[in-house]
Design a protein around this nucleic acid. Structure first.
Length: 467
RNA sequence: GCGCCGAUAGCUCAAUUGGCAGAGCAUUUGACUCUUAAUCAACAGGUUCCGGGUUCAAGUCCCGGUCGGCGCACCA
């Protein structure tokens, strides 16, 4: 079948509904429109035919009559899912349905496969994710979820632009994977004949840009971690990181809650949302509690990084956790937090005062040498964001990296590698700076009420079919 | 990576204790000038995910594999 090279489309379905909302049943307008979309339903009734056309804005009924419509017989033989371009007058049928009375029409593309049951759509996860284009047409909620994600990203950008931030881009091909503790994907550059790692975080590059003089920057981009998949983890995911010179962690907490609440407001017109049938409020200010406080409350006794190590080991093992001999009280407290607290944190909360032992890039706490000025945001039982006053001293940064190397020697799988270029950058002088990273997919899941991260990723990572 | 569960017509799903593999929608044909998941009539549609095994007989039981969902682990 040959199809036209273009179609003089001039109206969207929702525009017709808005403009002619007052038209009475049986009424005519004398207004001719050209609309295009897919035929979602077709009801042929002898010399009349009713179709439901869906475009990106919504749906409008097509009303074809043998006396009016060109090639009427062929029109009644359209297949569900076919793209058509239609011109005709806007009318309302006797039964009250606003319609385009089809004068001329043409097939813009055939649908050789159907889009699933017209009532149930497509439910099979395999089909939905492997052929997302079909899922998106068959299941409007799939489109809504991706549109919400787009709205979240747009809102974050707009909020940061309006606060004077500049958007930047940093390398995805890294010779030293840095900025987080995670296994990287490795690829090969032929001309250099060297292996590169896909980035696991843009963090160190971004701070080098602050050294270079950009005081408010952010990057929204893909990071890659060679780890398992789950309803909350995709091997490639989107992170927003931002850095502000002269700020500390407390300034950053205020910005964090503002932009997250702002994103919800922008997409949902409310900071009150429902996640998986449970109410959830993004209204600011969010709660702020130290990790030691939360753990103390959960275990029923006062604990902190200053608690004797043996006691923390006991508390951890009582909860099914297993301690590694190389772990100090900081790591133990953090493990206790994960087993005893994390899953119960529903409303967004800043968990503050992270142990220095688990925070190799964060600045030492001004009141406690074993802690850092670092927070993580938890919401709906999972981590949503991470921020801190940046460690700016190159000598201390080197020590922290060396501590990580010792951990690796002690058998820890995932630690940070020493990044000499980054240390040298710090030697040129990083001013007091606060940084923030938000898992954009996680944020989008909450705002889109998506139970699975794959719902808010257009084409999630899937295992290829074999054989 | 480990555990549990799932896969039947193009789509959504049935199939009793192991006993002829079914329905609705879609497709095809016919009827129908106001339908709204149109309706009515008829035809057609199957490697029951793949490969083995047990049995007179397997969609159903057993073994192996593929892909997916959930949980755990890793992590954000």
């Amino acid at each position: 079948m040959t199809t036209p090279y273009n179609f003089p489309h001039d109206t969207f379905a929702d525009e017709i509904h808005q403009r002619f909302t007052d038209l009475e049943a049986g009424g005519e307008t004398g207004v001719t429109v050209a609309v295009a979309g897919r035929v979602m339903l077709l009801r042929v009734q002898g010399k009349l035919s009713f179709g439901t056309l869906r475009d990106s804005s919504g749906e409008i009924q097509l009303f074809a009559l043998s006396a009016v419509t060109e090639s009427f017989e062929d029109f009644t033989k359209l297949h569900l899912g076919d793209w058509v371009g239609v011109t005709g007058e806007v009318v309302r049928t006797r039964k009250g349905e606003l319609s385009v009375k089809v004068a001329t029409w043409q097939v813009l593309a055939e649908a050789r496969h159907n889009f699933g049951d017209k009532w149930a759509g497509i439910n099979d996860f395999d089909v939905r994710y492997r052929h997302r284009e079909a899922d998106l047409w068959a299941n409007p909620e799939s489109r809504t979820a991706l549109a919400s994600r787009s709205g979240v990203i747009r809102s974050l950008r707009e909020q940061l632009w309006s606060r004077g931030f500049m958007e930047v881009e940093t390398p995805m091909l890294n010779s030293v994977p840095s900025g987080a503790a995670a296994r990287p994907f490795v690829t090969h550059h032929n001309a250099f004949d060297v292996d590169f790692s896909l980035r696991i975080a843009p963090e160190l590059w971004l701070k080098r840009l602050v050294v270079g003089g950009f005081e408010r920057i952010f990057e929204i981009g893909r990071v890659f971690r060679n780890e398992g998949v789950s309803p909350r983890h995709n091997p490639e995911f989107t992170m927003i990181e931002l850095y502000v010179a002269y700020w500390d962690v407390y300034d950053m907490m205020r910005l964090t809650e503002e932009i997250c609440a702002g994103a919800a407001e922008s997409v949902l017109a409310s900071t009150t949302l429902t996640y998986q049938e449970r109410p959830l409020s993004f209204a600011t200010p969010w709660a702020r509690r130290s990790m030691a406080d939360l753990v103390s409350e959960a275990v029923g006794e006062d604990v902190s990084v200053h608690t004797p190590r043996e006691r923390l080991v006991t508390l951890l093992s009582e909860r099914g956790g297993e301690a590694n001999e190389a772990w100090g009280t900081g790591r133990l407290l953090s493990e206790l937090f994960e087993v005893a607290c994390e899953a119960d944190l529903w409303e967004p909360i800043f968990v503050t005062d992270f142990p220095l032992e688990v925070s190799p890039l964060a600045r030492r706490h001004r009141d406690d040498d074993l802690l850092t000025e670092r927070f993580e945001v938890y919401c709906a039982g999972r981590e949503l964001a991470n921020g801190f006053s940046e460690l700016t001293n190159p000598d201390e940064q080197r020590k922290r990296f060396e501590d990580q190397a010792r951990l690796k020697a002690a058998g820890e799988d995932e630690t940070m590698e020493i990044d000499e270029d980054y240390i040298k950058a710090l030697e040129w002088g990083l001013p007091p700076t606060a940084g923030l990273g938000i898992g954009v997919d996680r944020l989008a899941m909450l705002i889109a009420d998506a139970p699975n991260i794959r719902e808010i990723i257009a084409f999630p990572t899937l295992k290829p079919l074999r054989g």
